[in-house]
Design a protein around this nucleic acid. Sequence first.
DNA 1: TATACGGCATGACGTAACGTCAATGTCAAG
DNA 2: CTTGACATTGACGTTACGTCATGCCGTATA
Lengths: 250, 250
Amino acid sequence: MAYTVKQLSDLAGVSPRTLRHYDAIGLLKPASCGENGYRYYSNESLLRLQQILFYRELDFSLEEIKEIVGSPDFDVIAALRAHKKAMRQQRSRLERLIVTIDKTILHLEGKRNMSHKEYFENFSEEKQRKYAEEIRQRFGDKAFEGCTDWSSYTPEQQAAIRAEIESIYRDFVEKIDHDPRSAEVQQIVARWHQNLRYFYEPSVEGMRGLGQFYSEHPDFAAKFRSMHPTLPEFLLEAIDEYCGNLTGAV
Amino acid sequence: MAYTVKQLSDLAGVSPRTLRHYDAIGLLKPASCGENGYRYYSNESLLRLQQILFYRELDFSLEEIKEIVGSPDFDVIAALRAHKKAMRQQRSRLERLIVTIDKTILHLEGKRNMSHKEYFENFSEEKQRKYAEEIRQRFGDKAFEGCTDWSSYTPEQQAAIRAEIESIYRDFVEKIDHDPRSAEVQQIVARWHQNLRYFYEPSVEGMRGLGQFYSEHPDFAAKFRSMHPTLPEFLLEAIDEYCGNLTGAV
DNA sequence: TATACGGCATGACGTAACGTCAATGTCAAG
DNA sequence: CTTGACATTGACGTTACGTCATGCCGTATA
């Protein structure tokens, strides 16, 4: 029920010094302090520490964290939902950083050209800052994305949409000897893009992620590979190009 | 061709002070130093700075970075591939953190029980450290995952494997009224797990990612939802449980 | 030509979030 | 009853910069 410093530090994967520091700055006070001066942490402390670690993961300063979790109208569950959203953003940032890596490799191998600006894309996103403001303003946020409900379509519509998807994939296979960046192929990507919107409003990042996924995920890749051995890589290149142009245009 | 401090700092999204600091500690020396004492950075500097930022992103200390990028046998492209791998790990760690968030929410809502240990799962992964050691030992790493080549199967085998996958999905639908954590359902998950191995050796994280993906990605979710409206969520829960047990066992 | 103004330089000190001793008290096990 | 792991409070060290202060450079404008 009550944890000592070492016990909690082992559990949470932080150093004892860190816990003492958090006590010192009033960020995480122990639930009780024994006669001997020992710190004892309770259930609630654990939850609070978890919150602190989540915010730390998102690069908040301890001062900011203290303000946030110390606020009287701090809602743990709402905060958790916000964390989820922020981590998804982090994740997509990582994905875009991976794209930057890919581009750089191609560039260094002389297979592609790259502007100096592109070297440093996606390192520091200001979205993180936006999130910080947002959360300081209001803790209760919905965090539910506007994902169109598939079941809102009639069975006939569903069948039609699926058929369209399949036909798009077949069209890709047909053009597989073309350059993925050619106009013809790019047109098919545009159709694919349109089709996605039956499900949700796809962001550029989201689509890039799909391209990645199509080529990486074995289950998916298997499906495409069964249509054509190199289809996944072809799709990846084509979608990447498409997204690149989108970004340039916007 | 030559960038001044401010120009490079704007380009790369770091402060001028940071650049001066990197010069001071010998991490990033300017290509040339003008009569007036001005720092001028070249093309190569840009690439080096990019490398530095990548390592910084992975929480290396500047001292470590200096050692690594300063090493005579430092191979940029190999390093980039290693970055890619490390960032994928980061990404999957984030995904698991999101799972931890979900669990905590369910726990707080009283819909699920959670051990104190679970509170802090996936915050600090020691894999990061493993990567650090690995990269310090040897820069030239292959970074190509052992992904079984789908085309190495005969068409008949491919068909059989796909058929097996489909049958597994159908079995899930059949048991959809059961508890996802029941033994019967877990057995099907085990079959699914086995089947994955035709494609690659799935890690626990990888599988958890799949569960997430099945329920999140619209294209995939659509496929499953067409089989049963709540199949994606069912799969997510079932796979999550399965992975949880695996981790516990190992 | 003067002057303003942004960018450059070098110190030098500040700071955040701990790490790392040092010196000392506490407690459960053998 | 000692031993060894864990507890305490200082206090200083460290990393990766931020933030002045002070002064020089360079060029666009009055």
